[in-house]
Simulated scan of single mutants.
Amino acid sequence: MKKRIIPIFVPHQGCPHDCIFCNQKKITGVSTNVTSLDVKNIIEEYLPTIDKDAQIEIAFFGGSFTAIDIDIQKSLLSVAKEYVDKGLIQDIRMSTRPDCIDEGILNMLKEYKVSIIELGVQSLDETVLVDSIRGHNADVVSQSAKLIQNSGIKLGLQMMVGLPSDSEYKCIKTAKKFIELNPECVRIYPTLVVKETGLEKLLDENEYKPFTLDESIKIVKKLLALFYVNNINVIRVGLQATDDIQVGKAVVAGPYHPAFRELVESEMIRDYLDYIIRKNKVTSNILINCNKKNISKIIGNKKSNSVYMKNKLGVTLKTQEDDINIDKLEIILDNENIIAINMKDMYKDLYNIYNL
């Protein structure tokens, strides 16, 4: 069944904590200018555009939903619940901080039919949490995650790569701890330096250096291999492109790319093909029959994978569109040896290649 999301952005007029990467200004009282009427209007605008056989989800994005004034939470959720009760909407999702969850909040959210809560964890390394001014430690995350799962609500976790004091080792360690918490889904974001944040100040003072795009790709491909092998759904990699999310506008530095996930997955395919070519002593060419949706990932951004194969390995890389399942590849080596593989097996091999 197709899944469709009705996004409702709930920006805060203040937040319970000022993280170093965020530019929300703290004021007295935590509120939002989004009203129940806004929620209703957004839902009504989206519904006619969605196929009747789709599974529809209302998703409250934009901040720490459970940190908003409780009466406002109830007001916004009451509208969403009406559509669930009518059978027009199947799920209600929200994101929040790990230290803004307790049993009382969860009981209220269950009354309003909330089915998925994503925790903005960012990192489970204590030094990274302190240097990012997160305002809580790693234990709070595990406690909140267990409370959510015990309540019957599905758990999602979000992590950031490249925060102050971060490293590849710390990112991988965080991912492994995520796996232990067994979330329903995960999101991975490279850290970007946004205007008017503590991170921009550190950057200006040469006390913070963002990960480069290449560094971020090399780390995130290992995180994806970890999550995929452990059957955890990664629902987003990289920030969604908007008018503001561009270097030179709201973003002043950092590894931003509008197709970040494709860059990561393309390099994973390149690493796997490199392994196959060396293992099988390919000397001439490699032809891949694949679903048309995979062709750009196999060839690489600006043909980077093709160039790599030719320059580094002396092998010509070709693709051929086939009516093949998107999760499968048929690899023909030197016009004779055929390897049929599904993506899951490829991830298992990458898990070993990356020494995870």
Rank of each mutant, 00 (worst) to 15 (best):
K2D: 12
I5Y: 12
I6N: 04
I20E: 15
F21T: 00
K25N: 10
K26W: 02
V34T: 12
L47I: 13
P48E: 13
D51M: 05
I56R: 14
E57V: 09
I58V: 15
F61K: 08
G62Y: 06
S64R: 03
F65W: 09
A67C: 11
I68D: 01
I70S: 14
K74M: 13
L77S: 09
L77N: 10
S78E: 11
K81L: 09
E82N: 13
E82A: 03
L88R: 13
I89Q: 06
I89E: 05
S95K: 01
T96P: 04
D102W: 02
G104F: 02
M108N: 09
K110V: 05
E111A: 05
I117T: 01
S123H: 01
I133L: 14
R134M: 05
R134C: 04
G135R: 03
V141R: 00
V141E: 00
S142E: 12
Q143P: 00
L157C: 06
L163W: 03
D166G: 07
S167L: 06
E168N: 08
Y169F: 11
C171V: 02
K173A: 12
P183S: 04
R187L: 06
P190S: 03
L192E: 01
T197N: 10
N206K: 13
K209R: 12
E215D: 13
L223R: 05
V234W: 01
L239F: 08
D243K: 15
K249F: 09
V252T: 11
G254H: 07
G254Q: 08
F260I: 10
R261A: 14
E262Q: 14
E262D: 15
E262P: 01
I269Y: 11
Y275W: 07
I277R: 03
I286Y: 00
C290H: 01
N291A: 09
I295H: 06
N301M: 05
K302H: 09
S304V: 00
Y308P: 04
Y308I: 07
G314S: 10
N325A: 15
I326M: 15
K328D: 14
L329D: 08
L333G: 12
E336P: 11
I341F: 14
Y351I: 05
L356C: 14
L356G: 07
